[in-house]
Design a protein around this nucleic acid. Structure first.
Lengths: 412, 412
DNA sequence: TAAGTGTTTGTGAAAATTCCCAAAAGTCAC
DNA sequence: GTGACTTTTGGGAATTTTCACAAACACTTA
C-alpha cells in the first residue's frame, strides 16, 4: 500500500488527461480536473461508471451552472477556496450529483483548479485523501503552464477590446477578422454592458468577477475588461428572443451573486441597445456611459432603469437644464412653494415631488410621506392655491415634475 | 324760422367748442362732439342741464366704456356708422343716459366723429334733424384738421415703436426721453401683446382695431402697430394687481369684440411676461414670437395658453425634437402601436394621445373618443400589452406624451 | 393667556372608478 | 360560409377615491 512518502504522481505526464487517468487508476474511481472557472481540463476514461452531473460536465466541457450554484449555496466551493484539504460532497439527486470528493489545486494563495473524484463503488479513505493532495500538487505545474498561455491570450483580448471601444478599428471586415483570429465567435448582434462599482476594483475582485463571468452560462460574453471602477462586457445577442429581459435578468443575477458570494454591493448596471454593426461599438459604449452619468445624477429615480431607452424623461435632462439656464427661467409654482416652505418650515415641495413621482396616487404618496391621506389632500389643496397649480392639467404636472427634478440636481 | 337753405353754421369757428356752443344755441339743448373713437372733442357750456352719462364723458374726456358697449349692443353705434342721418336714442337709465339724438360726421365713406344733442326739456323736430345734418357737415373740416395732425403724430409713434421692437434704441434714458417727447406716460413696467390674425390686415380692419383699442379702458395701451397679420401692443402694467389675469381678460375681450362687432375670428393672442426695463423690449417681442410659433405648431394643445410661462412642456419642443433627431431615437411603444394600427386599421395611437391629454381620465377620454368607457379600458389594456407600457409610471407616461406630440408635428 | 390661523388626523357618506362577465358585432383566414 | 379571434358595449358589483366635517394640536400675535 501507499504511504505518505511514496508519491505515485511523481512522474512527468505529457498531458493532464494522463494525470487524470493515473489518479483514477490509483483511487479506483472516475476523476475530472477543472480549472478555477470550472471549465473541464481533463477527465479519466478508464472507468465507465459515472453520474449525470459528470456526463453534463464532459459534454458541455464545463460544469453546469446550476451545479455550480448549488455547490456555492451548499458551501462546497467556499470550502474548497479556503482549504487545501479534500472536501466531501454528498449525494444531490436533484442536480444529478453522486457522492464525490473534491480538492483544490493551489499556487501560493491562489486556486488554479479542482480535482473531482466520484465515489461510485468505493468510499475514499483518509489514505486516499493524502493521495489526492499529492495529485493536486502534481497538477499544479500543468495548470500553471495553461495559465500563462491563457494570460497571453487574455492580453490580446484586452488590446482588441479597447481598440473596439475607443473606435480605433473602423473597418467592419477587419474587425470580424480580428474576432476570428482570437477564436471568438463574432456574433451578428451584440450589446455592451457596463457595471459601475463603488471603488476601483482590486485584483482579487477582478478574479472574482472573472470567475462569475466564466461560470455564467446565461449569456455568451465575447469580451470583457475592467476600467478603474467599471466592468465592461461585450455580449452576444444572437439567438435570444427577449434580449432586454435576458440582459436584465443577467445583470440582476450578477449583482446578486457579487453580493451573496463576495459581499460586493452598490453596483450600478447599464447596458446598450442591440447593435448589429461592430463599427457602432463606440456609440454603444458612449450610450452606456451616458446612462451611467444620468443614473449617477438621479440614483433614486433611475434605480431600476438600465438602458437609455428606459430613461424616458431623464434622457432629456441635459438639454432641458441647458434650455432653462438659457431662458433664465424660474418656475412660478416652485418659487412660491419654496418661499412658503422657507417661511413656515413646511415641506410642500417635497410633498409635491413625492406626489408626482407616485403618479399622483394619494394613497401611495401619503404612505411614502408617512402622513394621513387627508393630510396629503389638504397639502395638495394648499399647493394648488399657493402655486397656482391645476392638477388636472397634464402639461402643468409634467412641467412641475421636470422642474422639480432639475432643481434637485442643479445644486440649488 | 330756419329753412333748408339757410345755414346757421356757415361761419368760421375758431374752435370746435365754439361750434358746439352754436349748435346748442340753435337746437336749445346741451351738445357734445366726439371723434370716431368716442373721445371728447368739444361740449357746449351755455346750458347747465345734463345727464350722468354726459357728465362722465366730460370728466373723463371720453365716453365711458360701458356706455359704448351698451350703444353697440343696442344698435345705436352700428346705425350711426351706416347712415348719415340723425339717430334717436331713448332713455337708458341703467347707464345714466337720457333721451338724445346723435349724428355721425362723415368724410366720404369714413366716419370722423359724432355730435350728440341731449333732449332735456325739448324733443327735437324733423327740422332740427336737418339742422343737425348741417352742423355735422360744418364740423367735418375741423375734424379733418385734427386728423391730419393726429396722423403725423401717429407716424412718429410707429417709428418709435418699431425702433424699440427691433432693438435700435439701447439706452434706457434715451428711450424714456422719447416717451416723454411723444407725451406717452412711460410706465415702469410693461407687457408686449401680439394678436395674430388669419390674414393680413386691411386698412378697414386696422381702423376697427384702432377703434377697439382707443375705446378700451381696461388697460393703458402705450403704443400699438400692425405688421402684416400681427397686431402688436405695448401695454402698461403699472398699478395692476393681478397682471396676468387682467391681460388674459383683455385679450379675451378683444377677441370677443372683434368677433361680435366685426365678425373677425381666429385671432391668436399671446403676451409677454412683465418687464421693467425698456431695453428688454426686443426680448419681450421675441418671447411673444416664440410663443406664437409654438402655438401655430400645437394649436389644439395650446389653445388656452397665451404666455411663455404657461407653455409648460411645449417650451421644450424645439430642443426635444433636436435631441430626438440627434439620437435617431425611436419610441418602441409608439412604433409597436403604429404598426398595430397600420395592420389592424385600429387607432391605438390616437386613443393613447387622447387618454394622456385628458390626464389619464378614462371617462373624459372616452367621451372625447366617442366610445364606451369599457372600450377605452380594453384598448388601454391592449396598449399596455402591445407597447409594453406601465400606466402607473409617470416617467413612461410623460415620455409617451412628449413623443406623441413630437411625432404629430414632425411631419411623419 | 386667549384668540386666531394653519395643520394633522379620524370618521363616514357620497361619488367615482375599477373590474368582471356576457352578449353582440366585426374581422380574418380557410 | 364557418370558426376563431378581436373589439365594442352594457350592466352591475366591488372597491377606491373624494369630500365634508369635527376634533385636536401647533404656532403666532395681540
Amino acid at each position: 500500500m501507499y504511504n505518505g512518502l511514496y508519491d505515485p504522481f511523481k512522474i512527468d505526464f505529457d498531458s493532464l488527461d494522463e494525470l487524470a487517468d493515473r489518479i483514477s487508476q490509483v483511487l479506483e474511481c472516475p476523476v475530472t480536473i477543472e480549472d478555477s472557472n470550472h471549465r473541464l481540463l481533463a477527465y479519466s476514461t478508464h472507468d465507465e461508471r459515472t453520474d449525470p452531473a459528470r456526463i453534463a460536465t464532459i459534454i458541455g466541457r464545463r460544469v453546469p451552472e446550476k451545479v455550480i450554484n448549488q455547490l456555492w449555496k451548499e458551501g462546497t466551493i467556499p470550502a474548497l477556496l479556503s482549504t487545501k484539504d479534500p472536501i466531501r460532497v454528498n449525494n444531490m439527486n436533484e442536480i444529478g450529483l453522486g457522492h464525490r470528493v473534491a480538492i483544490s489545486i493551489w499556487k501560493q494563495e491562489e486556486v488554479l483548479g479542482f480535482i473531482w473524484a466520484l465515489e461510485i463503488n468505493k468510499t475514499l479513505t483518509e489514505e486516499d485523501y493524502l493521495l489526492l493532495k499529492k495529485a493536486a500538487d502534481s497538477a499544479k505545474n500543468k495548470l500553471l503552464q495553461l495559465q500563462t498561455r491563457k494570460n497571453k491570450k487574455e492580453e490580446r483580448f484586452q488590446e482588441f477590446f479597447w481598440k473596439l471601444l475607443t473606435g480605433h478599428l473602423h473597418n467592419r471586415e477587419e474587425i470580424i477578422k480580428h474576432f476570428h483570429s482570437l477564436q471568438i465567435p463574432a456574433a451578428s448582434s451584440y450589446s455592451l454592458l457596463v457595471f459601475q462599482f463603488q471603488q476601483n476594483l482590486t485584483s482579487k475582485e477582478e478574479q472574482n468577477i472573472s470567475y462569475l463571468l466564466k461560470t455564467n452560462q446565461r449569456l455568451k460574453i465575447l469580451l470583457h475588461t475592467i476600467d478603474c471602477n467599471q466592468l465592461i462586457l461585450l455580449v452576444s445577442a444572437d439567438n435570444i428572443q427577449n434580449t432586454f429581459d435576458e440582459l436584465t435578468k443577467f445583470v440582476d443575477l450578477f449583482i446578486y451573486k457579487m453580493n451573496i458570494r463576495y459581499g460586493v454591493t452598490k453596483i450600478t448596471p447599464v447596458f446598450s441597445r442591440i447593435y448589429h454593426d461592430y463599427s457602432n461599438i463606440t456609440k454603444a459604449y458612449n450610450e452606456t456611459l451616458e446612462v451611467l452619468s444620468i443614473k449617477n445624477q438621479f440614483p433614486d429615480e433611475t434605480k431600476n432603469i438600465y438602458t437609455y431607452q428606459k430613461l424616458g424623461i431623464y434622457q432629456f435632462f441635459h438639454v432641458l437644464l441647458q434650455k432653462r439656464k438659457n431662458d433664465s427661467y424660474e418656475s412660478y409654482t416652485l418659487k412660491m412653494l419654496g418661499e412658503y416652505d422657507e417661511k413656515h418650515n413646511s415641506n410642500l415641495l417635497e410633498t409635491l415631488d413625492v406626489f408626482l413621482t407616485k403618479d399622483t396616487n394619494i394613497n401611495d404618496a401619503a404612505k411614502e410621506l408617512n402622513v394621513h391621506a387627508n393630510t396629503l389632500n389638504y397639502r395638495l389643496k394648499r399647493i394648488a392655491e399657493i402655486g397656482d397649480v391645476d392638477f388636472k392639467d397634464p402639461n402643468q404636472k409634467m412641467t412641475l415634475y421636470i422642474d422639480l427634478k432639475l432643481q434637485k440636481y442643479q445644486g440649488i
